[in-house]
């Protein structure tokens, strides 16, 4: 589907989007730029919509044998169809104070970026008539919106997202444990957070979600400044989420800081892989449609592989 809107990557970079007011407008711009018929359901099943042929193997259901092909070629091929699913997507959005950080060269705060990503995903899911729910959290679950596939459901999702002013500290482990209790129906759980918590606690929470048979995907979102510590002059870092202020010379601690961050990220990533959790690191400088496309493409390939 092609729209009249300029959907080049440039137009979807965070600087451009930041000029747009309203989450809905931003999400629509992202989705419109992104969707051009490329989207497909990650699930295949018994549907009317033909997907592809596959060579017959003993044990396959003969109902799906393509007799026409057999008549022409004397070879057995099975028809495969796109699955019509009743997907439930749970969006878990971190609205703790740390998400409000916006680096000196960033157009959006992490929360703004996360809101855009969440809104876009919600839009995409709803467009496919799948159900999408939302939970915002900091040290506890703050707001929840029950899953629904109703198109009008988007407004309430965006409203919750927009009204989620960042505050309090993160306590991901507890929140995930709590939510895993609430999300009884199996679905896709999409977590958008900086995960600034103890890695052990984070991974423990994620394991709870996996334990509930959810398909969990983590979009860890960081500001580029949080990765690089790009400051040149001695700086007093005012701690968010109630942390103490720290005065330091960024020059002298940069390498140590980066090592710590890398270690943390590696730990999270390793934990995710071990628990078959789809993990992706995003930074707020990345164009949103590119980030979204890369995420969904990797999801698609992962889903196919899993089949």
């Amino acid at each position: 589907m092609k729209t009249g809107v300029d959907n080049s990557p440039k137009s979807l970079d965070p600087q451009t989007l930041a000029k747009l007011k309203g989450l809905q407008l931003r999400a629509r711009r992202i989705v419109e730029g992104f969707i051009s018929g490329a989207h497909r359901s990650p699930y295949r099943g018994f549907s009317v919509e033909f997907s592809e042929h596959r060579e017959y193997a003993p044990g396959d259901d003969l109902r799906y044998l393509d007799w026409k092909v057999f008549g022409r070629t004397d070879k057995y091929y099975l028809k495969q169809y796109e699955d019509e699913t009743n997907l439930i997507c749970y969006l878990l959005l971190d609205v703790s104070e740390s998400m409000s950080y916006r680096g000196p060269n960033s157009a959006m705060s992490k929360l703004e970026y996360a809101q855009c990503i969440a809104a876009s995903l919600a839009w995409l899911v709803l467009q496919r008539q799948d159900a999408v729910g939302l939970a915002t959290f900091h040290w506890e679950v703050r707001d929840t919106v029950s899953p629904s596939s109703n198109a009008s459901h988007l407004a309430s999702l965006l409203s919750v997202m927009e009204n989620a002013s960042p505050r309090d500290k993160t306590s991901v482990g507890n929140v995930f444990r709590e939510l895993s209790q609430k999300m009884t129906k199996r679905g896709i759980v999409l977590i958008i957070s900086d995960l600034f918590d103890e890695p052990g606690s984070v991974l423990s929470g994620l394991r709870h979600l996996r334990h509930r048979q959810h398909d969990v995907a983590v979009l860890q979102l960081l500001d580029p400044a949080e990765l690089q510590l790009p400051f040149d002059v001695p700086t007093r870092f005012r701690g968010m989420e109630g942390a103490a202020d720290i005065a330091a010379d960024p020059h002298s601690i940069r390498s140590g800081y980066r090592a710590e961050v890398d270690r943390f990220l590696a730990q999270i990533k390793r934990g995710c892989l071990d628990n078959e959790i789809d993990y992706r690191l995003l930074t707020t400088e990345q164009p949103l449609d590119v980030a979204l496309a890369a995420f969904l493409t990797s999801r698609t390939s992962m889903t196919r592989q899993s089949r």
Binding site: E97, Y101, L222, F231, R238, M240, A243
Partner: peptide, 13 residues
């Protein structure tokens, strides 16, 4: 002579 900067990732610092 410090500049002020709000900072989220204090645990790594």
């Amino acid at each position: 002579r410090y500049q002020d900067e709000a900072w989220a990732a204090t645990q790594f610092l």
